[in-house]
Write a protein that binds this DNA or RNA. Structure first.
Lengths: 117, 117
DNA sequence: TCAACCTTGACACATCAGTGCTAAGGTTGA
DNA sequence: TCAACCTTAGCACTGATGTGTCAAGGTTGA
């Protein structure tokens, strides 16, 4: 059975066995299994587990954040959508002649009317 | 007072006023303020608010996720750290002569001993 | 002036993330 | 064989997210 079992991996990485299972369910690090279903952690997994701890500690982020970064990494569509949102400039009153966009956005009363309709 | 007030912005974007304040505290969209401190949403903010809703709905993600993506966008250091973690290959037993890494990782008993010491 | 709006602060509640622990049952190796 | 390990499932608790609502007090505009 080459590879460390969950308790051994926990010992050498500093995570608790409980968290190793949780990290696995989060899709971050999925060790292979022995014939009987035991988790077997190889050197690669152990390294990823150790650096994962540093990553979280040094950059004030959560497992969920890493999980999302992984999604961005694997889903180009998602990455593009998010970047497109960033491109939506925070404010550009020049796009529309001054004072004009407000009328386009409708006046308060017209909007209320529209809401009722 | 050019710009929509919070309730007006809520009406046209579909968010509740409560959520607009929440989104602001999350650092996602921060409207400018009038002299008296009223939030004033311009066309840019309104657009971002609308597209934000679509982004969340269409990609099964949370405001926290967008916030983290924004951090990645603004902190190259963080982005590099995360990418470096992804590079840590999920498993590469070839790096070390077969059966060797296990001894390097110490045997179970040696590790237990080390743990006590 | 005064109704209708705005502000911040706080209570409340559901859901999820993170984490520990126990239970019931299978695996392993000296 | 049997102690020591593994598995999944589930209860439980803290803290954060997401969201509503109410209170006390300032702003605005007809």
């Amino acid at each position: 059975m080459d590879g460390l079992t969950i308790n051994e991996a926990a010992e050498t990485t500093g995570w608790s066995p409980r968290m190793l299972r949780y990290i696995e369910r989060s899709g971050l690090i999925e060790p292979r299994r022995s014939a009987a279903g035991y988790r077997l952690y190889g050197p690669g997994e152990l390294q990823r587990l150790r650096t994962l701890r540093e990553l979280l500690a040094e950059h004030e982020m959560s497992l969920g954040d890493v999980g999302f970064a992984l999604r961005l990494h694997r889903e180009p569509t998602l990455q593009h959508a998010v970047e497109a949102w960033f491109e939506t400039t925070p404010s550009r009153p020049e796009d529309v002649p001054a004072g004009d966009w407000l009328s386009w956005e409708q006046t308060k009363h017209e909007r209320l009317l529209a809401a009722i309709t």
